[in-house]
Amino acid sequence: MFELFRKKENLRDRAFMILTLLCAFLPLAAAVGFLILLGGNSAEAFRTFGFGFLVSTQWDPVQELYGALPAISGTLLTTVIALGIAAPLGFITALFLVNAPEWLGHPLSQALDLLAAIPSIIYGMWGLFVLAPVMQDYIQPFLADTLRLGKLPFVGEDYNGFGFLTAGLILALMVLPYICAVMRDVFRMTPGPLREAAYGIGCTSWEVASDIVLRYGLRGILGAVFIGLGRALGETMAVLFVIGGIAELPDSLFGSGTTIAATLANNFNEADGLLRSVLFALGLILMLLSLSVQAAAQLYLRNMDRKRGEK
């Protein structure tokens, strides 16, 4: 009888193992499924336009001529603006939060983390109704006319509150909590003796941050930047409202354009036939971009874990 009980338990244990492992394989299966479905559905677009699709700037629904370059370059431009702001900002905010006394640093860290809890549609709405008018009335006139940046190429003197710069600013605010959180970890990871030694020979706290912590945790910081990059690449709602939604190559910071995600959101519901296939192809491109960014982030952050493990 005891033997019987044992057998039953063993059977249950085997079932438990199979069940949990099956569930563990689901994300891998989903990732492969994404690639297969997106690839299969975008075949028509690639057959029609060939790989010229990637570099064509046309977007003409009447003649059914489509190119991906405006959306791709818009995506890259907003991402670059967002990261250009959020990465240094994340670094110095993390620096402050780690060095600040507990009673100040803790609530402020929590407040920053709350930025990540606000849904992206709220960012979009805020961008459309609050930030865009402020950009139009104060910030863009200041940048273009007062600082005379409007004369520079690629900035432009025409502004209406919308466009790449506004979208980039909102994205920067959205990815800031993610970048800042990883950077705080990186700062805390730097061995105490290393930092204390630097203080001991008379370094200022900025020198400790830039010469010791930054170099020690460089890979972790790059990982943080890639995490932010991945978030910014595919963000839809926050960008959709302020980007303008025109399928043209970006010609200036204040100009309107589109991103891959915004193109999908704007057109997918009404699309069929070739256009739908084109949109799937854009989705595939976005997936591959995001995959490579995530792979890079994992590479950097995994090495960081290994370093932490040695400690």
């Binding site: 994300p27 989903a30 990732a31 994404f34 997106l38 995490i227 991945g230 978030r231 690449l233 595919g234 963000e235 839809t236 995600a261 999908l264 959101a265 989705g283 976005l286 997936m287 995001s290 995959l291 960014v293 995530q294 792979a295 982030a297 994992q298």
Partner: peptide, 9 residues
Amino acid sequence: VMMGLPSIL
């Protein structure tokens, strides 16, 4: 990778 995938996808 799936965690970082754009939600629209």
